[in-house]
Every structure is written in structure tokens, then in C-alpha cells.
Design a protein around this nucleic acid. Structure first.
Length: 204
DNA sequence: AGTATGATGGACT
DNA sequence: GTCCATCATACTA
């Protein structure tokens, strides 16, 4: 069960987005390990993607990390309340990113419950259990991912990705991306990927 | 089931 | 001042 290394990320976002399904996101925080399987992703790819924060080659401090080496984290703050976590793909000066949209918790459920709802896992009702990590803002809260994780090297830090179980036989569903109605023709690009029938997927 | 609405603040023009 | 790669809650049915 190895940590994913730089070459994995050094491809276009559509490929990386698909292949990230079934992989495991791990955060080692203060002696507590949080781990969860990636079940939903979205690709943001290239200068022509009107939904992407780097559309048209826009290059501001916020998106700078996306123009750098692959395998780093791009975290952004949205709607005044939430953080979203992306993996930088593609090569240098080739902007590609994969938004992690949903996870299936594997380890550290107690801490995730505390992070999300400020109460122990045993007190969660069913919809809260699903709600731990079934959205991009939710999973960041559960994993304790905030702006301080901007630019983390996922190949070298407390936050990383590793291979999933080998028996992960699943079907990949391809769908439109979520929350980008402003993006004209790009809003219909089929660049969202999720594991069919997984209950943690945010939008079916 | 679905639809609507308000929260809340940083990035950018 | 405007725009968000969202979410929780409050409705209607």
C-alpha cells in the first residue's frame, strides 16, 4: 500500500481524476490518523476551461500553485465558510487540478465526527454519518483541511494519498460538474467522476 | 422527494 | 461592490 508518487499526478486532470477514485486520502494529525476512500472527483483542465479558476491563463497568488509541479495541494476558501481541496495535476505551467468532492471514511471516524459536528461518532444520526464527508466543503472540515494546507507537497507531508485495496471493483460514472452554471459551454463538460452506487457521492 | 433561501468573507475588478 | 468549484435549514407535497 504505497504512497502515490509524483508521476501519478503528472498527467492531465481527467486521467488523474478518474484514477483517484478508490485511492485513499490520509491525514496524520497529532497522532491521529484520518483516512478515507476517494469516491467523487472533478477535473479542471487547461486554459479553455471556463469553470476553472485559471481560465484563460489567469495567474493570481491564489492559483499560483496550480502552475507549479504536480502533486501539491490547492486549497481555496469559498462562500465565506468553506474550504475545498484539490490535487494539482499536469506539469509545470500546464494548469490542471482535481477537486476532491466526496470521501468514504475508513479510519479516524471519531475525530471526523468531532471536527464536523463537535460530538462523538456514537451520537451521530444516520444522515450525519453520511454527511461527514459527502461534499467538498464537508470533507475538508472532517479532515481538518484549511488554508494552512495550501501548497502542501502531497508526496512529502502529513497529508498524502495512497493506493486503495486491490479488490476495489467498481464502475465509474461520468457526469457534469456541480455548481458552475456561470461557465457557459464548460458547464456541460462531463468532467465529474464518481463510484457508481457509493452512498457518499454528493450528487447522483 | 423537491425547491428556495440565507449565511458569510476572501479574491478580484 | 460583485462573485462564488457550498451547505444547512425550512419549507411544500
Amino acid at each position: 500500500m504505497g504512497k502515490l508518487h509524483r508521476d501519478f499526478y503528472n498527467r492531465d486532470a481527467l486521467t488523474v481524476g478518474k484514477e483517484l477514485l478508490g485511492k485513499v486520502l490520509v491525514h496524520e494529525a497529532d497522532g491521529i490518523t484520518l483516512a478515507a476512500k476517494i469516491v467523487e472527483t472533478e477535473a479542471y483542465s487547461g486554459f479553455e476551461d471556463k469553470a476553472a479558476h485559471f481560465y484563460g491563463g489567469k495567474r493570481t497568488p491564489r492559483v499560483e500553485v496550480i502552475y507549479g509541479e504536480p502533486g501539491f495541494s490547492y486549497v481555496y476558501f469559498i462562500y465565506g465558510m468553506y474550504n475545498c481541496f484539490n490535487v494539482v495535476a499536469g506539469g509545470k505551467n500546464d494548469p490542471q487540478a482535481v477537486l476532491i468532492r466526496a470521501l468514504e471514511p475508513l479510519e479516524g471516524l471519531q475525530q471526523m465526527a468531532l471536527n464536523r459536528f463537535s460530538k462523538p461518532y456514537g451520537e451521530l444520526v444516520k444522515r450525519e454519518i453520511i454527511g461527514l464527508t459527502n461534499g467538498p466543503g464537508k470533507l475538508c472540515k472532517a479532515f481538518g483541511i484549511d488554508k494552512s494546507f495550501y501548497g502542501e507537497d502531497l508526496c512529502e507531508s502529513r497529508l498524502y494519498l495512497e493506493d486503495g485495496e486491490q479488490d476495489a471493483a467498481f464502475q465509474i460514472v461520468t457526469a457534469k460538474r456541480v455548481g458552475i452554471d456561470y461557465a457557459e459551454e464548460a458547464k456541460d463538460f462531463p468532467w465529474r467522476f464518481y463510484i457508481k452506487d457509493n452512498r457518499y457521492v454528493s450528487v447522483k
